[in-house]
Nucleic acid binder design. Structure first.
Lengths: 117, 117
DNA sequence: TTGACATACAACCGATCGGTTGTATGTTTG
DNA sequence: CAAACATACAACCGATCGGTTGTATGTCAA
């Protein structure tokens, strides 16, 4: 269970760790685009862009639907949200740390921040 | 400006795209840990863990402070929040797409999804 | 001062990444 | 049907990644 989750997290963060792929995500979240239409926007080969789209698709960040000879890519906002929620969980760990510090300060009112051993 | 931002985003997402580094982030957000203390938790060499910590530090996700011969690592919640806000911006693009669709439907009530040029 | 501990970093290695070109397959159109 | 278009994928290449071992430096404690 957790192992597959970590695999998924690896794939999601890796997919977003490239500026071309993040730019593709911006476009396909705003609306459907064929792979050719996307490829026309970047100064690299069609095959390179097609591989970027494949990485995003494998990570679940976009889906494709056939329309004639075109393949229309569309961003999956739920996947983006799931990444955001992972970060929220991280932030919660920090909140716990602060809460623990506050608790200690409440138990021992003589403690001051610059009081060191 | 934008170029440096993309560099930073590359570094942040890349740093989070590894399960060991995400686990280190969980620990250092919850509280300070020395590099040795972190290294003891993983089945890999000290040097490997030290490199993971260095990647997180270079990305700005954690900071280190000297304490005698130890180097105490602490997670930077602001950096985590900045990553989360990038994802929120992506989600906003999707909201714009939905809003545009709603607008079209409102302007032209006869529009149906399978109506094409 | 000497020895043990904590850290940093260089050099190396196999694997993966991000790009290329070339080729194959399916689809639309004249 | 044939030609042009849209996509997919394999093979290759230099660069980066994630790990290793070895070495150097600084700090604490006997």
């Amino acid at each position: 269970m957790t192992d597959a989750d970590e695999d998924r997290a690896d794939a999601l963060f890796h997919a977003l760790a490239d500026r071309t792929r993040r730019d593709i995500m911006r476009r396909v979240l705003a609306g459907e685009h064929s792979v050719s239409a996307l490829a026309a926007k970047y100064d690299m080969s069609f095959a390179a862009v097609q591989k970027h789209v494949a990485v995003l698709e494998r990570a679940g960040l976009l889906t494709k639907r056939r329309n004639g000879r075109e393949q229309l890519a569309s961003g999956d906002v739920a996947a983006v949200r799931s990444v955001r929620s992972m970060l929220t969980e991280l932030e919660q760990l920090w909140r716990g740390r602060i809460a623990r510090i506050d608790e200690l300060l409440a138990l021992d009112p003589t403690t001051r921040p610059d009081q060191e051993d």
